[in-house]
Design a protein around this nucleic acid. Structure first.
Lengths: 354, 354
DNA sequence: CTGAAAGCGCTTACAG
DNA sequence: CTGAAAGCGCTTACAG
C-alpha cells in the first residue's frame, strides 16, 4: 500500500480511502490510485485491515459441523455459505467428528482468527468452552441440538413430536413390535427421538420391549449388524424406526441381505440421497437442512449487527424449523399377519381374510 | 497481551515467547504468564501474529470447490481438511458453482486473507487470475481438471482412458448403440471423457452416431429428460454411458420411469452414495476423492515448505490418481437382441440360440 | 478533500 | 534468559 501511495503520489490515507470505496475522494486521485494498484498488482490485506479497523470485523464466521462430508452437514454448510456470501461474509467450516476435543479445538482455532460469530452443531460436551467464547463477546448460535448457554440462540426441529407421530402411524398400520435404532446417547437429538418413540408407545398403550431397542449406534455397519440380530431373534419386529440417516442405510442393507425389505416396515429420521429410488422407496422424516442453515445464519447476522450497535441485549432465541414426514412406501408396509387386536387393518385387503 | 504482561509482571516479549512455546523461558515466568492468561481469559490473536511474523504464514489454505454440498466436493474437502489438520493448518472452502466469476471472487477473498496456499477445482475460465496469484508467490495446486499455468501443480485421473475401457466393455457385451450423456463442454473432464467414448468407437470400428450423444448437460433433470428422448427415438440405444454422477442419477430415474432399467445397460462416471443398493446396482468408474484430496494437500504443503526455504524452483508436477471400474450389474446387462454381427455374445446363453 | 501520525496486537532483532 | 523498541499493513481521528 505504501508503494501504491508513492507511485500514485498521494498519502497512505488516500489509498486506504480508495480501496475501501469511501466517498468524497477526488476522481483524479481515485484514478491515479487505481492505476498504481493495477500496475503493482496490489492486493488489499484484510487481516491487517481488520486489525486496525474500529469495529474489528473480519467479515468471517466459523461453522462447526459434525463432518463436512456428511450430507446433512454439507447441505447446512452450503446454505449458510449462501446466506453469508450475500452479505460479503466468508464462512470457515470444520468437522468435529462428534468429538468434544475437536469441537473445542475448532472453536479455539476460529476464535484465534477472530471470526465475527460462530454457528455450531454442538456435541453437547464442550458447552463450557462455547459459553466462555460467548461471554467474551462472540455471537453464537447452536444448531440441531438444543443447548442451554446464556445468550446463545438455538435452531432445532421437533424431534420427539415428529418421531412420536411416525411411530404412531406404524402402530396404526397394525405393527406391535417396532424395532428402534438410535444414535449415540450423548447426542441431544438421539435422546429426543427416543423420547418420541417411547411416548408413542405410551400413548398407544403398548409396552416398551427393550429387546427391540438398540441405542448408541453411530455408523451404518453397526446398524446393519443390529438389524440382523433383531430379525433373527425369537420375536422379531415387524417394523423398524431408525433415528438417523446412516442407521437407516445400514438397516436397508440388512433388510436387503435377508430379503426382508418388502416385508418389514421402515421409517427413518433424516432424508438421504436416492432414498426415493430404492425399492421400496424409504419413508423418512425429512429435515430441511437448507432452511435450518438460513435460519441460523439470519439469527447470527442479527446478533452481529446488534453487537455493532452496542445493544447486545436480545434474549436467547429458540427457532424451531418445520419438519415433515415423506411417505414413500417402506413406512406404509403393513404387518404380515394382521394383529388379531386390530381387525380394521385387514380390510385393506392385505393377506387372507381369515 | 499487554494486560497479561502487566499482570504477570513481565515484558511483552516474554508473553509472546510463552504463548508460542519458544524454548528457554524461566519456568517460573512461564507459570506466571499462564496464570495471568487464564485469569484474564486471554486469547491469542493469530491475525496480528501472522502480520508481524517473519514468514507471514497464516496457517490457512483456501479450497475452491464446485459446491461444498456435492458428494465429490465434500469428500475432497474432508480429506484435505484431515491432511491439513495434522499440520495445524486450517482450510477454508467455498463453492464456485462452475461460475468463473465466483471462482475469481473466491480466489480473491482467500488471497486477501493471505492464505498460505490454494487448492482449486478450476472452472477453466478464470485461469488468468490463478496465474496472477501464483506469480505473486502463492503456491497453488489444481485438482480434477488439468490446467496449464506456470508453477501450478495438477492432480487428475485418467478420464479418457477409463471411459474408453468402460465403453469398450459395453461393446464387448454386444452393444452397438451406446447413448452418451456429458457435462458442460467447458469442463475439462467432460471433454476428456467424451474423447474416451469417441476413441472406444474408433478402436472398435463403430461409427459415432450423433443422435445418441447429448453433451452440455449439467443436472439430473436435464439428464432424465435426455434419456427419455433417447429411449423413445426411432433407433434407441441399448446401453448408456453417463459421464458424471448427477447425470447417472437422472438416467436411473428415466430408466425406472420407463421400466427399462433391467433392459438398458448403464455405466456412470463417478461413484455416488447408494449406487450399490439400487436394482440393478449401478456400475461406475469410481474416483477416489479422498486419495485425490490427500495428494493435492501433500503437493501443496510441499510447495509451501519449499517456499519457506527459498527454493521454490520445483517444476510443475502432474499427479494421476488411479481410478477403477466397479462392475455392479447395470454395466453388465447384455443387449436384448444379440447383434447378428457378434454371435460370440449369444454363447453366454442369453436369448434364443437361433 | 487530503496527509502525517498514532496505533491495532502481535513478533523479533537487539542490547543487556 | 529477558525487556524496550521497532515495525508488519492497514485505518482513523486530527489538523490543515
Amino acid at each position: 500500500m505504501k508503494d501504491v501511495a508513492t507511485l500514485a503520489g498521494v498519502g497512505l490515507a488516500t489509498v486506504s480511502r480508495v480501496v475501501n470505496g469511501t466517498a468524497n475522494v477526488n476522481p483524479d486521485l481515485v484514478r491515479r490510485v487505481t492505476e498504481a494498484s493495477l500496475k503493482l498488482g496490489y492486493r488489499h490485506d484484510l487481516t491487517a485491515s481488520s486489525l486496525r479497523r474500529a469495529d474489528r470485523k473480519t467479515q468471517t464466521i466459523g461453522l462447526v459441523l459434525e463432518d463436512v462430508a456428511n450430507p446433512y452437514s454439507s447441505l447446512l454448510h452450503r446454505s449458510v455459505e449462501e446466506a453469508c456470501r450475500l452479505r460479503g461474509i466468508l464462512v470457515i467450516a470444520g468437522s468435529s467428528d462428534e468429538d468434544p476435543g475437536r469441537e473445542h479445538e475448532l472453536v479455539q482455532t476460529f476464535t484465534q482468527r477472530r471470526v465475527d460469530g460462530l454457528i455450531v452443531v454442538p456435541t453437547g460436551r464442550a458447552d463450557e468452552e462455547i459459553a466462555r467464547v460467548r461471554r467474551s463477546g462472540t455471537p453464537i448460535v447452536c444448531v440441531d441440538r438444543l443447548v442451554d448457554i446464556p445468550d446463545v440462540d438455538n435452531v432445532t426441529v421437533d424431534n420427539s413430536g415428529s418421531t412420536c407421530e411416525a411411530v404412531l402411524s406404524l402402530i396404526a398400520l397394525g405393527h406391535r413390535r417396532i424395532g428402534y435404532l438410535g444414535d449415540l446417547d450423548t447426542i441431544w437429538t438421539a435422546r429426543r427421538r427416543y423420547a418420541g418413540y417411547s411416548e408413542a408407545h405410551a400413548r398407544a398403550g403398548l409396552p416398551l420391549d427393550t429387546r427391540l431397542i438398540r441405542r448408541d449406534i453411530h455408523d451404518s455397519e453397526a446398524a446393519e449388524q443390529a438389524v440382523s440380530e433383531l430379525l433373527t431373534s425369537a420375536e422379531p419386529p415387524t417394523a423398524l424406526f431408525t433415528a438417523q440417516n446412516l442407521l437407516t442405510i445400514g438397516a436397508v442393507c440388512a433388510l436387503r441381505g435377508m430379503g426382508a425389505h418388502r416385508r418389514i416396515a421402515l421409517i427413518g429420521f433424516d432424508d438421504f440421497p436416492l432414498a426415493d429410488l430404492l425399492e421400496p422407496a424409504v419413508s423418512v422424516i425429512a429435515q430441511d437442512p437448507a432452511a435450518i442453515g438460513v435460519a441460523a445464519a439470519h439469527l447470527l447476522l442479527e446478533r452481529i449487527d446488534d453487537h455493532d450497535h452496542d445493544h447486545d441485549h436480545r434474549p436467547a432465541r429458540h427457532e424451531i424449523v418445520p419438519i415433515r414426514y415423506l411417505p414413500r412406501g417402506s413406512g406404509e408396509i403393513e404387518p404380515e399377519r394382521p394383529a388379531s387386536a386390530s381387525p380394521a387393518v385387514v380390510s385393506r385387503g392385505q393377506g387372507p381374510s381369515s
